[in-house]
């Protein structure tokens, strides 16, 4: 079968991936007060990468994004556990979450919670697991 010219799919993917990535990051950061969070944010980001895999081939995407997704999942689990251990340092129970208000230079008064770090761990684990599954399935030829 000869290779088809899919210029429409490619050019639309370039725009759509940016929107999906922005939406994924928005979902991730809005998880504390609105629907969203680490799990859906990670899944949406994995969706964007999967769209790239479908449009372009896996090898060229992997060349431009040299991330070891297994190590990424491991890092996510490690971050989640370390935020739990962080509560134990201040004589609290495991997984005790703390938050405080800071004056950041760009955002003004912002609530920073250690739940966000836990969410980051969840997101990394979800992205790593989903991409590992997809890449492993696609690699038998």
């Amino acid at each position: 079968m000869k290779k088809q010219n899919d210029v429409i799919l490619r050019s639309v993917t370039r725009i759509a991936v940016i929107i999906i990535l922005t939406f994924a990051i928005n979902l991730f950061f809005s998880g504390h007060h609105a629907p969203g969070g680490g799990f859906v944010g990670g899944l949406a980001l994995a969706c964007a990468i999967t769209l790239l895999f479908l449009t372009f081939d896996i090898e060229s995407v992997r060349e431009n994004m040299p991330v070891d997704f297994k190590a990424m999942a491991a890092t996510g689990v490690l971050i989640a556990i370390l935020t739990g251990v962080g509560g134990m340092i201040y004589d609290d129970a495991f997984l005790t979450q703390a938050f405080n208000y800071y004056n950041l230079p760009l955002f003004g008064k912002t609530e920073l919670a250690t739940a966000m770090a836990f969410d980051l761990g969840v997101a990394l684990a979800v992205i790593g697991t989903a991409m590992t599954i997809i890449i492993t399935i696609s690699e038998d030829r």
Partner: peptide, 20 residues
């Protein structure tokens, strides 16, 4: 803003899926 983004996204992707 999510609804506007959704409108834009549907308008961008639905014709392409029909084309494919």
């Amino acid at each position: 803003i999510r609804l506007i983004l959704g409108i834009f996204f549907v308008f961008l992707t639905a014709p392409v899926s029909a084309h494919m």
